[in-house]
Simulated assay, not measured.
Amino acid sequence: MSTSSQTIMTPSLESRLESAARDLGFVAFGIADADAAPHTVKRLAQWLADGCHGDMIWMESRAEQRGSPKGLWPDVQSVISLGMSYAPTEDPMALAQHADIGRISVYAQGADYHDIVKKALKALARWMVTEIPDLQLKLFVDTAPVMEKPLAEAAGLGWQGKHSNLVSRDHGSWLFLGAIYVSVALKPSVAGRDRCGSCDACQRICPTNAFPAPYQVDARRCISYLTIEHDGPIPEELRQGIGNHIYGCDDCLSVCPWNKFAQSAHRHRAFLPRAELSAPELGDILPLDDPSFRQIFAGSPIKRIGRNRMVRNAAIAAGNSGNNSYIPILTQLCGDESAMVADAATWALAQLRRR
């Protein structure tokens, strides 16, 4: 009686690595060669030369390291790119019609993504060290000169859309990105392919015209930059366009047609929105002092911008609201110790009185 032998296929290191990543909460996974995005260097240099980075001086000071993985770490052979979903349940654009509500970007309504993603990256790194002898690695989540989006595209997680953010066929624009640089060569994934086509919805929706051309963003006009990174008075010609945004902006992401495939069920539970951050009233934000600001926004990425920027943003939103009930608190803020808060409050008062 003859017996037939059956070959047992051992899963590859790459497939086991992906399985481990998904067990840790990552919904997107891919691998790219360290030199898979050479166009990044030229694009970054031109963007910086045009001054589109605004006050983000760190983008310029570490441009050589940011331009390519080997510029940051010469020993890197492969880049593991990972994405964690924060897909919202509600349409972020719905609050645009509620002038007395401050709009906070979806990514900042839950726990600080730096902490959540980094914890998962460290756990995955520990798994890799036990699997690959003599492995060296470095992990990053928005805290080092790493071009996460071009690398994620090269690793097949999606493509950089016309708004410059990553777009995934499965998760839309709602992905937190992390990266692990490793000192071994892994089998690369198939790179992402641009699927924007003729759509320009993200370009047309921008209230401050921050896109000089498709695939280009001028941070100096971007609401996310102005309300988060910019420390000083916001240019007056851009203030009406800010509307009721008080921290970041999701407009160009929200209108992307690919978001219809993004399911909030895939969202990591840590990013469920906190009630006080999903739809805060301007009247609750404007009177904040520093201790109360820190208390409310503890554990949130919002905390890093500080009380002054947040109240500045809320004052501008109040000026755009048309609601005269803000006049007393704005009058008080005109004498605020922070010059940029006082400036925003003075402008807002003028807007309300004019109306």
Rank of each mutant, 00 (worst) to 15 (best):
Y181M: 03
V182L: 04
S183I: 02
A185P: 00
A185C: 07
L186R: 04
V190H: 06
A191R: 10
G197W: 08
G197F: 10
A201E: 09
C202E: 08
C202W: 06
Q203V: 07
R204F: 12
C206F: 11
P207R: 10
T208C: 05
T208F: 01
N209I: 15
A210Q: 11
A213T: 03
P214V: 08
Q216S: 12
Q216D: 13
Q216M: 07
Q216A: 14
V217A: 14
V217E: 13
D218T: 05
A219Q: 13
R220Y: 12
R221W: 03
R221Q: 13
S224F: 02
T227N: 01
T227K: 02
I228L: 08
I228W: 10
E229G: 05
D231R: 09
P233F: 01
P233H: 04
P233N: 11
I234L: 01
P235M: 10
E237H: 04
E237K: 00
E237D: 13
L238C: 01
L238V: 01
L238A: 05
Q240A: 10
Q240R: 11
G243D: 01
N244Q: 05
H245V: 00
H245W: 12
H245S: 09
I246Y: 02
I246F: 02
Y247R: 03
G248Q: 08
C249Q: 02
D250G: 10
D250A: 03
D250C: 12
C252L: 05
S254I: 02
V255S: 04
V255E: 06
C256R: 10
C256Y: 05
C256M: 09
N259D: 07
K260S: 15
Q263G: 07
H266P: 05
R267E: 04
H268V: 04
H268R: 07
R269N: 13
R269G: 09
A270P: 00
L272M: 11
P273T: 06
R274E: 11
S278I: 15
S278Q: 15
A279H: 15
A279C: 12
P280F: 11
P280I: 07
E281F: 12
L282E: 10
L282D: 09
G283P: 14
G283S: 14
G283N: 10
D284E: 14
I285L: 13
I285Q: 14
L286N: 08
P287D: 04
L288C: 05
L288W: 06
D290T: 13
S292C: 08
F293G: 04
F293R: 05
Q295A: 12
Q295N: 15
I296A: 09
F297I: 02
F297N: 08
F297C: 07
A298K: 12
A298P: 01
G299Q: 15
S300G: 09
P301L: 09
I305H: 03
G306N: 04
G306H: 13
M310F: 10
M310A: 02
M310G: 03
V311G: 05
